[in-house]
């Protein structure tokens, strides 16, 4: 999870309170990635321990302003300049489910069709969210990213269906041979 680097990126624009960081993080990601305030403070204390941010003095309301350090700026830049590796992402349950359905010899077509309808509903929901957030570029890009991912999943499902249809025909032909 990139919460640490995300908070550094927000702090690079100037000192912030913890609650401000939480609000800005959610605004930038179109609320697709909700953070609880506990995660924010845990992360800030780790960043402080590692010397990437410097907490200020508590004010009379008990609030602390956090400032990014030189090391913090360097870490943020390292993050922006490093591509995300596929292996950093969690395994996709859908891929495993379809592979297992094929392995178990069940009829995969209804699994694919049910997923296709569900993924399209997700895509419709994302598209509505995009229309509602048209004026915020950061939110729009986050929602676009999820739209592209859902779209890729939809295309992959079409592909699975075509490949399985072709292979079941080959399979039947082979089985008929002595």
């Amino acid at each position: 999870m990139a919460i640490k680097q995300g908070l550094l990126a927000l702090l690079s624009r100037g000192p912030r309170y913890g609650y401000q960081l939480r609000a800005e993080f959610e605004a930038s990601t179109g609320a697709t990635w909700p953070l609880n305030i506990g995660q924010v403070y845990t992360t800030l204390s780790r960043l402080g321990r590692d010397g990437l941010v410097a907490p200020g003095e508590q004010d009379e309301q008990g609030r602390v302003v956090y400032t990014i350090t030189e090391a913090g700026l360097a870490e943020m830049e390292r993050w922006f300049s490093t591509p995300v590796a596929q292996s950093d992402r969690p395994r996709d349950e859908l891929v495993i489910k379809l592979a297992m359905a094929v392995a178990a010899g069940t009829d995969v077509r209804p699994v694919i069709q049910a997923q296709r309808v569900a993924t399209m509903r997700t895509l419709q929901g994302l598209t509505r969210a995009k229309r509602a957030n048209a004026e915020s570029p950061a939110q729009r890009l986050v929602i676009d990213s999820m739209i592209f991912q859902s779209e890729a999943e939809q295309r992959w499902l079409d592909h699975c269906e075509a490949v399985l249809a072709a292979s079941s025909q080959t399979h039947q032909t082979q089985e008929r041979q002595p």
């Binding site: 399209m120 895509l123 419709q124 598209t127 859902s150 779209e151 295309r155």
Partner: peptide, 14 residues
């Protein structure tokens, strides 16, 4: 045939 554009619809028919 583009899911991303179909998603603008109220209803998607397969």
């Amino acid at each position: 045939h583009e899911p991303r554009y179909a998603a603008w619809a109220d209803r998607v028919v397969f």
